[in-house]
Design a protein around this nucleic acid. Structure first.
Lengths: 244, 244
DNA sequence: ACTAACAAACGTAATTATGACGTTTATTAA
DNA sequence: TTAATAAACGTCATAATTACGTTTGTTAGT
């Protein structure tokens, strides 16, 4: 039997990072529809994955379900960052392809989440929605109000990655110091002095050097490190600092 | 004509600060109902102010409207911090007093905001909902899931007040250094060294000493200061710092 | 008029963190 | 062998933080 759906949806902003191209990416799905009568192209753009919330699930569960359908992954870092619900949200003609929404005369409110995952963990080809990674600096045309949702997710991520070590959710388990720096630079859109960054990061107790180096590079191979969540949590539990 | 309402509501966590008692307070309204037949007390607790979102207003406008009805105030600092919508949210018998909700078979999702305002700006007596200030360390019994909403608002405020100078939204326009320290201590639940805090705050360009001192105190009267939002915005626009 | 009490306000010294650079090292490709 | 290049290490001046001690200005009580 089908689940009863609500006029409330979740939308998922899925961040991934490609250490090769040093690019912060978003996973988007294709939306395409042309009129059967006139052959007019009604929609041809990309959107975030999202779906209506079932009556018997929490908002968090709903977001987790949507991500699982998209990527097959569970247990990824997830943050609910904002609800969107302007009254004109359903006025857009393009929305008509979502037949479920038509069942309501009410407008839809969407609760937006972002996820952080390792690009390597996702098999994009296996996906039935034609999901595709896009560099955040070169996004395609976006449907609904998803441009705005993405921008606000990015802003929230900027602030959050400076306050908590969530950056490691986007990196492979073994990474180099420069991987971390490149990722910070991708997220924040700034340049960081490598020598100072390196010193600062290596001094963190929760950055563990491994007995391993990069292989298959044509330059001096870099030292590999891992992040210890355990040590972080033991040392930095509620370490508020007044900085303003 | 009545506004059409949605099965989406806003709830407002209203923070105020009393410089005399040095207490961070919340503005709550009384909820009381007894059965006409059995005289059984159905509900007798306090709740956040909230209301359903009208079909033609944004979520932000809805929160602003609720705050205005409660306090008469507009243009207060406002932050949407989380949406709450567990499937059991309408199972609570106590909810039955909200007749509007019964019009829906759907559960309600509430978008929670917090507001920061100066206690002195609110005339509690003038309020038709019997609104009352409660110290956040001594809250009464709370209805619905409002205990949880308040806790999450408080956590968000802790982080936010360390990242941005929103603390001054809670203080009178003219304040002492110790007022600011006391407020930080109330919000964060920590103790701060007065001498170091004082030096740090006075060194901020946006903390302006006035040609005025406290009056009516029975000790050495303290210097009064004001916060210059202008100077802050000119100096601190997008000053990201990697700290982790 | 003097003094105790007390919070406001100022001061200091050691340590740590930061910003802005210069130098050396290990590797591959030519 | 060597040039090229990214990784890794080093230095120094300045700023910020931590952890305290001391002085000042006011009122209230004698």
């Amino acid at each position: 039997m089908p689940n009863k759906i609500l006029n409330i949806s979740v939308d998922c902003v899925v961040f991934g990072y490609d250490t090769n191209t040093k690019s912060l990416n978003l996973l988007l799905i294709k939306r395409y529809l042309e009129s059967e009568a006139t052959k007019e192209i009604l929609v041809d753009d990309y959107v975030l994955t999202g779906y209506h919330v079932y009556e018997d699930e929490t908002l968090d569960d709903s977001a987790t379900r949507v991500l699982k359908e998209l990527t097959g992954l569970t247990d990824q870092y997830k943050k609910q960052f904002k609800a969107f619900g302007n009254p004109d949200r359903l006025m857009n003609k393009k929305d008509l392809i979502w037949s479920e929404k038509e069942a309501f005369n009410l407008r839809t409110v969407t609760v937006a989440y972002y996820f952080l995952l390792k690009t390597e963990d996702v098999d994009v080809e296996a996906n039935k929605y034609k999901a595709k990674w896009f560099p955040i600096r070169a996004l395609p045309e976006l449907g609904f109000d998803h441009q705005q949702i993405i921008e606000e997710a990015h802003e929230d991520l900027k602030i959050k990655c400076l306050a908590e070590p969530i950056i490691f959710e986007l990196l492979p388990n073994k990474f180099t110091i420069n991987d971390v720096q490149d990722l910070y630079e991708s997220i924040l859109g700034i340049e960081i002095d490598n020598r100072n960054f390196r010193r600062k990061l290596i001094n963190k107790k929760y950055i563990i050097p491994l007995d391993e180096k990069q292989v298959g590079v044509s330059k001096k191979p870099a030292q590999l490190y891992m992040f210890s969540k355990d040590i972080y949590q033991k040392m930095y539990h509620k370490n508020y600092l007044i900085s303003i």
